[in-house]
Amino acid sequence: MANPIVKDKLAAGDFIFAPGIQDMITAVVADRVGFEVVYASGYWLTASAYGLPDAGIVSYTQMVDRVATLVRTSKAAVIADADTGYGGLLNVHHTVKGYEEAGVSGIQLEDQEFPKKCGHTPYKRVVSCEEMVEKIRVAVEARVDPNLQIIARTDALQSEGLSAAIDRANAYRAAGADVLFVEALHSDEEMRTACAEVDGPMMANMSNGGLTPMRSVEEMQTLGYNMAIFPALTSLASAWAVEKALREALGQGGTPEPEGVPLFDFKEFCSLIGFEEVWDFEKKWARD
C-alpha cells in the first residue's frame, strides 16, 4: 500500500522536499536525517546500479526491482521515476500496476518519446499531447490505491516553448494527473509563470548542475510550487567524497586512512544498516 503522506501533505498545503536516492546506503542515511519523503531517481539509480546514463537503456524490470528494494529499505514514502511508462499504453498500465505493488506513494510519468533522455540534456523529443493524455488516463484507471499520486511531467519546453508546455500540463491535469511537473525551466520568471498558469499542484526539479535555478523551499513556495525533488545532491556529494578519499589514499602512499578525509563511524554504520538485529538474533539462538 502507498504511504498516504504525499497525498495528505498536498491536501494540507504542506511543502514536500524530497532528496534523490541512488542506493540503499543513501536511503538509510536519509532515514537517519529524518526525511519523510524521498525520490527514486531514474538517473541516479541507473548510474549507481548499472553504470549507465539515463537514456532509456535500463528496462522496466530492472527499475521496478530497484524501486521495490528502496521501498523495503526506506522508512520514508517513495516517489518513483517511471520514465515514459516504458512504452505504449499497455506498458503504462503494467508499469503503474508494478510500481503500485512495489509500494510507492507517487509515480512520475513523462511525455518524451521512448527511449527517453535526462531532462537536463539536449536532443529530447516528445510525443504528442494527445498520446500523453491517453497515457495519463490509462495510469489513472490502472491505479487501485487512492493514495498513489500520479505525477505528469512534460519535457516540451525545449522543442515547443513555455506556452505549449503549460498547455500540456493543464491537459494532463484534466486527464487525471494529481501533480504537474514542467521540466527544465530556465528562470524564476518561467517558473512563476508555469505555477500561475498550470491548474494543479506543481513540482520543481532542483537538480544541482542542471538548467533550472536552484532555489530554497521558501523561494519555491513564493514562486508557487507545492513540492520539489533534489535528485542529484546525494549522488554528486557521494561521488566527490569517494574520489577525494581515493586520490588522497593513493597520494599518501596507499594508506587506507588518508589525512583530511572525514569518514562515517564504522560502528555507527553497522547499527544503521541493521547489524544490531543480526547480533541480537545470534545471541538469542547461539549454541554453546
Rank of each mutant, 00 (worst) to 15 (best):
M1Y: 07
N3M: 04
V6W: 04
D8A: 15
K9A: 13
G13T: 04
D14C: 00
D14K: 15
F15R: 08
F15W: 06
P19M: 04
T26L: 00
T26W: 01
A30W: 06
V33P: 00
F35Q: 04
A40V: 05
A47F: 12
Y50W: 15
G51N: 11
P53C: 08
D54R: 04
A55R: 08
G56D: 12
V58W: 02
T61M: 13
V64A: 13
R66Y: 02
R66S: 12
V67S: 03
V67Y: 02
L70G: 07
L70P: 01
L70F: 03
T73P: 01
A77Q: 02
D81I: 06
A82Y: 07
A82M: 10
G85N: 05
A102T: 05
G103W: 01
V104G: 05
I107H: 01
E113L: 13
K116P: 02
K116Y: 09
C118P: 08
P122G: 10
P122K: 06
Y123F: 13
V127K: 11
E130W: 03
E130P: 01
R137A: 05
R137C: 03
V138E: 12
V140P: 00
E141R: 15
A142Y: 04
R143I: 03
V144M: 01
V144R: 14
D145W: 06
D145R: 03
P146A: 01
N147A: 13
N147V: 06
L148T: 05
Q149F: 00
Q149V: 14
Q149E: 11
I150E: 05
I150P: 09
T154Q: 02
G161F: 06
G161T: 07
L162V: 06
A169K: 01
N170E: 04
Y172I: 02
R173V: 10
G176L: 06
A177C: 09
V179Y: 04
V182A: 09
V182Q: 00
L185G: 02
S187T: 13
D188Y: 06
R192M: 07
T193A: 13
A194Q: 02
C195L: 07
C195T: 14
A196Y: 10
V198R: 01
G200T: 10
M203H: 01
M203G: 02
A204K: 03
A204C: 11
M206C: 10
G209R: 09
L211F: 11
T212P: 09
P213N: 05
S216W: 06
S216R: 05
V217T: 14
V217E: 14
Q221V: 08
G224Q: 04
G224C: 01
I229D: 00
A237N: 10
A237L: 14
E243A: 14
L246E: 09
E248A: 15
G251F: 11
Q252K: 11
Q252N: 12
G253A: 11
E257F: 13
E259D: 14
G260W: 03
V261P: 08
P262N: 06
F264E: 08
K267S: 12
F269S: 03
S271N: 12
S271L: 06
L272V: 10
L272R: 09
L272A: 13
I273H: 02
D280M: 07
F281I: 00
K283N: 12
K284I: 00
A286P: 00
